[in-house]
Design a protein around this nucleic acid. Structure first.
Lengths: 174, 174
DNA sequence: GACGTTTCCGAACACAGTGTTCGACAACGT
DNA sequence: ACGTTGTCGAACACTGTGTTCGGAAACGTC
């Protein structure tokens, strides 16, 4: 009974798809709510009945995937980078739209928080606060991710995970 | 004879100062051109005689500092991270406004390019493309920088440079 | 299949912010 | 004291936002 009405599902799904399409075509910043409405063929008032603004739609579009990523990380918290790379590889289209250079930086920030939280409890280096170590690694991992996305996912996720392990030997986490 | 007119200097300086102030107070994204005009007490048409938009003002405000940073890096290209940290420490107010979390991400992107270019020619790790190594390190360094800024420059620049050296021992660059 | 409910549409609206124009005036450097 | 150049301020057209509301259509349920 939670999601009973088909029309609601249809509207939200259509809007999400339109957003992804348009971000890939023209980049998030350049998009207008009206652009999304036209592409999705959804009425203006309908949009605002579902989302507060463009940003809310963006974040909602990432909700499902983020939840799954979080679950995976919770299940195996000792190798968040590997999980992130595999996850992105499985959802290339969405990750390209939301985490690539043309996506809004908001989603990246969320992922940053996710990975940062996981790393903070895994990493330890003598004489350096765990917070700082985690920050360095998280930023590095996301740098690798964005590079990978912008290079069309050349190489598999194992390769990238190997690169990370090679570049950050100061700890056990991968 | 290049910059003869005092009025021009005054206008540009006032606008830059107003921008920095307001970014520190309310964040770049939330700012209106009109806000900047009010704070600087400069006419609307005058603003557009100098800058195409808010973004152009932001980048111009970073021009001087960026040039000096580039010169420093060119002079000692083997330790770009250390130079960046020292540079930020010397210009805390501007860096806080332009590279902190509340600054537009544009300036950060510029710095990213600067550091990335320098690192790409310094780093080498067997079996990993230099491009990827540089991307990882650059992102990590900028992560450290942002963390440092957001923690009010606690510790000196040497400390942060030491942290970086400790976390990224896969190369000689510091 | 008929029902009451929920959602959607679409047009209208007020509003905020952008970037441009122009004439009058003031400040400038020489 | 001069001609030049920058600034002001008000007006304007324009784009995009977020809201409102009544009528129509689709929905789930019984």
């Amino acid at each position: 009974m939670a999601e009973e009405d088909r029309r609601v599902r249809r509207t939200r799904r259509t809007l999400h798809e339109a957003l992804i399409e348009l971000v890939l075509e023209r980049g998030y910043e350049r998009l207008t709510v009206q652009d999304i409405l036209d592409r999705a063929d959804v009425g203006r008032s309908t949009f605002y009945a579902h989302f507060r603004d463009k940003e809310a739609l963006l974040l909602a579009s990432f909700d499902d995937i983020r939840d799954r990523l979080r679950e995976d990380i919770d299940a195996a918290p000792d190798r968040p980078a590997t999980l992130l790379f595999e996850h992105a590889y499985q959802h290339q289209r969405v990750y390209r739209a939301l985490c690539g250079r043309q996506g809004g930086s908001l989603v990246i920030q969320h992922v940053h928080g996710l990975i940062g939280d996981a790393l903070r409890e895994q990493l330890a280096v003598d004489g350096v606060p765990a917070e700082v170590v985690a920050e360095f690694h998280t930023s590095g991992i996301l740098g690798l991710l964005v590079w990978w996305i912008d290079h069309d996912f050349c190489h598999g996720p194992e390769w990238l995970a190997g690169v990370y392990r090679r570049l950050a030997p100061s700890t056990m986490a991968s």
